[in-house]
């Protein structure tokens, strides 16, 4: 204990000699870097460094089983470029890019609107609130593989619950996962279903940060519920919305596990209709004949796309990041 106290003197002394002599803004900068030190080291070493390694692989005919890797320059990228020009039916890569765009463009807004609606309704009601919250959280705590299996049963062409219900209302039964036209939407529905709880909680936490007095004041001013929503709720919910838009976009762009678990053999079928870029990355990297270099190149392309989308989103949604 005495040792500890003694040990800190040089630090205290040097701190007093250096940092405390700085102006206040400069002191703040100093502390910002100190606080960020460990996270920065972590991200650089555990995330960025392996990412750079993976980027490096994209210039090789990289095979994990091989000792020496052959440098092939931009050949992997050229192959991707060729593959995306083929029809999606016979080119999984082309299909993967097409489908990934569909997942994001349809999935992200739908999930956002649904979860915000649910959160607003939840903050409105007074009884059974806990009960509903737990229910909306159920899918989120259930393992993806179990969820996938259950939905495969619900989607069954013959005895699946959905088709039984359709038949009961004398509506035509659907093929769902077994059809090229519906499979993607069937999977998307499950993903939205499973992620709803997360988004609802984020919105609820955001809504709780809005002081009730704002609404009371608005009510006194005679503004309608709809006006309050536009003028108070949405603007003050901005941090939550930005967060969810950016993160859900990224997560839809990186869609993988549900497709792996819900398609036969995890192949992203039928006929590539549900496959995604990350599923292709995984399949090409760990197939019988590994094409990890090609996978790495796909990763780089995906990375570039996500980075671009994220920067644009951050620019548009937060006018004052700095």
């Amino acid at each position: 204990m005495i040792l500890l106290e003694w040990l800190q003197y040089p630090f205290v002394w040097s701190y007093q000699q250096t940092v405390e002599k700085l102006s206040l803004p400069k002191q703040k900068i100093f502390w910002a870097y100190v606080f960020l030190f460990i996270p920065l080291i972590f991200f650089l070493y555990i995330r960025i460094y392996p990412t750079i390694q993976a980027f490096g692989m994209s210039f090789y005919d990289w095979n994990p089983l091989a000792v020496e890797q052959e440098f092939i320059g931009f050949d992997n990228y050229a192959e991707i470029f060729e593959d995306v020009q083929k029809p999606a039916l016979t080119s999984p890569t082309r299909a993967a890019f097409e489908n990934t765009v569909k997942y994001v463009v349809i999935g992200m807004p739908l999930q956002l609107v649904l979860s915000l609606s649910i959160a607003l309704m939840l903050s409105e009601i007074r009884r059974f609130v806990d009960f509903y919250r737990v229910i909306f959280f159920l899918p989120f705590v259930t393992s993806t593989i179990a969820v996938a299996w259950v939905f495969r049963w619900l989607y069954q062409p013959q005895h699946g619950l959905f088709n039984v219900v359709l038949a009961a209302f004398s509506l035509p039964t659907q093929d769902f996962l077994d059809s090229r036209g519906q499979a993607l939407f069937s999977i998307l529905a499950v993903v939205i279903w499973q992620g709803l709880g997360f988004a609802v909680i984020i919105f609820l936490a955001g809504l709780k940060q809005i002081p009730r007095t704002y609404y009371e004041a608005a009510e006194v001013d005679g503004s309608s519920r709809w006006q309050s929503f536009w003028n108070i709720t949405l603007p003050l919910l901005n941090p939550s919305i930005v967060y969810l838009v950016v993160l859900q976009t990224i997560s839809f762009l990186r869609m993988f596990a549900p497709v792996l678990a819900m398609t036969s053999q995890g192949d992203g079928g039928p006929l590539n209709s549900t496959t995604t870029v990350v599923l292709r990355v995984f399949r090409e990297a760990f197939g019988t004949r590994s094409k990890m270099g090609y996978s790495a190149a796909l990763t780089v392309v995906l990375f570039a796309v996500i980075l671009m989308v994220t920067i644009i989103q951050l620019r548009l949604t937060t006018r004052s990041v700095d």
């Binding site: 920065l40 990412t51 990224i250 995984f282 790495a296 995906l302 980075l307 994220t310």
Partner: peptide, 29 residues
């Protein structure tokens, strides 16, 4: 809550870790 040089870059650097599928990092890890 802090303003410091490189803030935006470091924040994007952190976020960029989400942009690479972890399936690709298995081997380096």
């Amino acid at each position: 809550k802090y303003q410091f040089p490189g803030k935006r870059a470091i924040f994007l650097l952190f976020l960029s870790s989400l942009m690479i599928p972890t399936e690709m990092l298995i081997i380096p890890w």
